[in-house]
Amino acid sequence: MNLREAVVAVRETGDFTALQEAIPYARFMGITAELVDGDVVSRMRYSDHLVGNASVPALHGGTLGALLESAAIFKLLWHGETTSVPKTINITVEYLRGARAQDVFARAEFTRRGRRVANVRVFAWQDDPQEPVALATAHFLLVQD
C-alpha cells in the first residue's frame, strides 16, 4: 500500500497501522498513532536506539522532536481532505524535562487551520499528560492534490 492509499485507509478505518507501514522512518522510530476519545494520540514505543544519554538514561532530544512533528502530521492527515502529506515550514521544540527510557505519547491541537497553512501546538508526555516532557509549535504548508 502506498502512502496515499494508506492515508485513505486510515480515514476510513481509524486504524493508523497502514500509515506507519507506509512511512519507513515511522517504523524505524516505532512511531504510530491511535484514536483515543475521537482524538489522534501518537506514540513512540521505547527502544534502546532512541536513547541520547545512556548514563541517565534519557531519550535523545531529536527523537522527541521527531515524535512531535509526526504527531502534528498524523493529526493533519486525519482531518485533511487531500492525500498529500503536509510540508513542515518550521518547528520549534521546547524541552521541559528529561524523557525517561519508556514510551512517549503526543497530542496535537490546531491553533489555526487555514486553506494553505496550519498552525499546530503539540504536547508530548510519558506518565502524566499534565506534565509534558516537550512541546512544539509548528507551521505546515497544506499541499493540494
Binding site: L3, A22, I23, G62, T63, A66, V93
Partner: peptide
C-alpha cells in the same frame, strides 16, 4: 515520504 524518497524531518531534527 516514499513518493519522493526524501528523509523524514525527524531525523534531520536529531
Amino acid at each position: 515520504n516514499p513518493e519522493t524518497g526524501v528523509l523524514h524531518g525527524g531525523c534531520i531534527t536529531s
